[in-house]
Write a protein that binds this DNA or RNA. Structure first.
Length: 267
DNA sequence: TTTTAGACCTGTTTGC
DNA sequence: TGCAAACAGGTCTAAA
């Protein structure tokens, strides 16, 4: 599932492949992918060029010559650059035909992803972006502690709350809890300032490592057909046994999400 | 105010 | 073997 490292990998791929190309045609095959009027989306973007690709949390922001649009990959969304004549995939919901005879296509098996036209000058005022908290690199441990130390919610849920800290998803939240030896069920209010600092540091380390490996490929995620390599470095997510003590890992729902942890090593 | 549950989706896995 | 149900999970919205 695309989390911050996967989205950053996609962003870098897009900068290399579509900037500064012009869009000559836009086709929307599944209208619900577009938040707003799909026909208007296609019409407005036709004739514009890609200026740059930004990212905030797990959102991609496509900056065009006149407009901008945001894109969230949700569970299984991915972008690929193919030849314009390449056959359409059954999960291809949106295509940008480019001036050089290529086509940037958006594929999403589960149709969860969304794109939305936004104001180019003020896109950060878009409600979904406004709600996002800072990324782990942009906050102090004091800020993080302040945000979590009064909450009854389990730390795993707080790490997934994008308004507290942006970028972590289910996979990396599991890894962070393991890395600091903490039960994912521990309420935020039970955590010391020192532990909060450890969690923040582990979040930065894990996300940085994952970006270096171009993300984690689980099921169908890929950026331009390339697979990430971080899945080979996951310590608990999707694993059977604890890499530290060798005991069988526990898998249960925490905050409604599948959670892997070691009852022996994570207290 | 904070937390929880349901909706959105469909391919894969599990159970009968 | 074949079918049905459960499961996967990020974000938004509504309800508790």
């Amino acid at each position: 599932m695309p989390e911050l490292p996967e989205v950053e990998t996609v962003r870098r791929m897009l900068i290399d492949t579509v900037v500064p190309k012009e869009i000559v045609k836009v086709e929307v095959y599944y209208e619900k992918i577009v938040d707003g009027d799909a026909a208007d989306f296609a019409k407005r973007l036709t004739g514009q060029s890609f200026e740059s690709i930004d990212r905030k949390g797990k959102f991609l922001i496509f900056i065009l010559s006149q407009d901008a649009f945001i894109s969230h990959l949700r569970m299984e969304g991915k972008y690929e650059l193919v030849d314009a004549a390449f056959p359409r995939d059954k999960h291809e919901h949106l295509s940008f035909f480019l001036e050089d005879g290529t086509r940037l296509r958006y594929l999403d098996v589960r149709k969860f992803g969304r794109v939305k036209l936004v104001d180019k000058q003020d896109y950060l005022k878009e409600p979904s972006l406004m709600k996002l908290g800072p990324e782990p690199w942009d906050i102090t441990s004091d800020y993080f502690y302040q945000r979590i130390h009064r909450s009854e919610k389990p730390i795993k849920s707080l790490l997934l709350d994008q308004s507290v800290i942006a970028g972590l998803g289910n996979i990396y939240a599991n890894e962070v809890c393991f890395r600091v030896g903490l039960s994912p069920k521990t309420p935020g209010k039970k955590l010391s300032k020192k532990k909060a600092e450890e969690i923040l540091e582990a979040s930065k380390t894990i996300l940085t490592e994952a970006i270096r490996y171009k993300g984690t490929t689980i099921h169908t995620f890929s950026s331009n057909g390339e697979s990430g390599g971080y899945q080979d470095h996951l310590l608990v997510h999707g694993q059977k046994n604890c890499p530290t003590c060798g005991r069988e890992l526990t898998k249960e729902a925490v905050g409604g999400r599948g959670t892997y942890y070691c009852k022996n090593c994570q207290k």
